[in-house]
Simulated assay, not measured.
Amino acid sequence: MGDDWNILKRAFHVDDIPEDFDPSTDPVDGVHYLQQVRWEASQCAPVVTAVIDEEKRKIRGVVNVLPECEKIPPQFLPDLEWQQLQVAHFSAVRERVSKYRNRDPPQTSNTQESVPEIGDEEAWYAICVEYKIPPLLSVVLPLPQLLIEWLLQCNAEWLSNSEHLSKNQGRWVYALMACIELPLTPESCSSLRAIARECARIRACEVSHTEEPAVTSLNLFICLVAKYFQQSDLADVVIE
């Protein structure tokens, strides 16, 4: 490469460090400051190598990347093929939802349920958890994104105070996740991560205290948050 591509090419001239240079004194001007920077850089090794503890790399069995959750036996974790299938199905659902929403007017059923306003947590708890209203297209499609984000946050909080994920609440969480728009806002991303963490916590409790734990829905939400919404640090990992 020519000089124009040399990444070490000087942007401007800096005088050499004088023999009597004292790096312990505070810079008195710009030149003195740049000389101090050059002196500090000269004290650094040109190449630094990290020391890796090989013993820590020899991990076998199940790795649960959620630090606050208990590890669970591998038979309760979803394999990669199952996760890929769920992500593909969820992606198809979101595409259909997007097509319905983008129609003018949006295509829903002729009967549209009346839903509470944002902020009415008690009424929405009755809908999402006690299942007063199912998450039909006629219900979820007209919901504004701000309300969907708020409902995801509410569901994360409700899960944090629960020891199980009901089928009814699971249906609402799935519907809200199918309707949340991309790119995620910081608030919706935080809510989705919280839902995944609570599902992992509930799953660990189910496995520890139930003879036949029902973990499929819990696995599903952890999978979708990690794989579809690209929060990969929350993914379930099994090392053979």
Rank of each mutant, 00 (worst) to 15 (best):
T185M: 01
N168Y: 07
A235L: 07
G61D: 07
A92Y: 04
V225W: 00
R193P: 07
D4Q: 14
A41E: 14
E70I: 11
L220M: 13
A196W: 00
E211T: 13
S208H: 04
A88M: 06
W39P: 08
S160A: 15
C179L: 06
C44E: 12
L224F: 03
L152H: 04
P106D: 11
C128R: 02
D29A: 12
I7D: 11
P134N: 06
P144G: 10
S166K: 07
Q83D: 09
L141Q: 07
I17N: 03
V207H: 01
L224M: 09
Y174H: 15
S208C: 08
L218W: 02
L34N: 10
S191R: 02
S162K: 03
L192H: 03
F21L: 12
E149R: 03
V238P: 03
A45L: 12
L146K: 14
V215Q: 01
S42N: 12
C154S: 11
D16I: 09
N102Q: 13
A200F: 00
E198H: 10
R103H: 12
P142T: 06
A11H: 12
I118L: 06
W82G: 07
D53Y: 00
L147N: 05
P46F: 05
L218H: 06
A45F: 04
I72G: 04
F90R: 05
L182D: 10
V63N: 05
G119Q: 03
T185Y: 00
T210G: 01
K132H: 12
A214V: 03
E95L: 09
V31Q: 15
N102M: 09
V115M: 13
Y33I: 11
N219L: 06
P142W: 00
E149H: 04
H13L: 13
V51G: 00
H32P: 05
V238E: 08
R203E: 13
T49R: 12
C179K: 03
P116S: 06
E130G: 01
I222E: 08
D120T: 09
D22N: 15
P23C: 09
R10K: 15
D26A: 14
G170K: 02
S24V: 14
P135N: 09
D20H: 13
I239L: 15
Q43P: 05
C69I: 05
N155D: 11
N102H: 10
A156T: 03
R201T: 12
C189Y: 01
I72T: 10
S232V: 13
P18G: 07
E211M: 04
P135V: 11
L234P: 01
K99D: 14
D79L: 04
S138Q: 07
L159K: 06
Q112W: 00
F90S: 07
I195H: 01
R203S: 12
V97H: 02
K99C: 11
V51T: 15
I148A: 04
H164T: 15
E206L: 05
H89E: 14
K58V: 11
L182C: 07
A196Y: 01
A175N: 05
L184K: 02
H32M: 04
V62K: 06
P186H: 05
P67K: 08
W158V: 08
I52D: 06
A175I: 11
L192M: 09
P23I: 09
L182Q: 13
A92D: 14
V87R: 02
L80N: 10
T216V: 11
P67N: 06
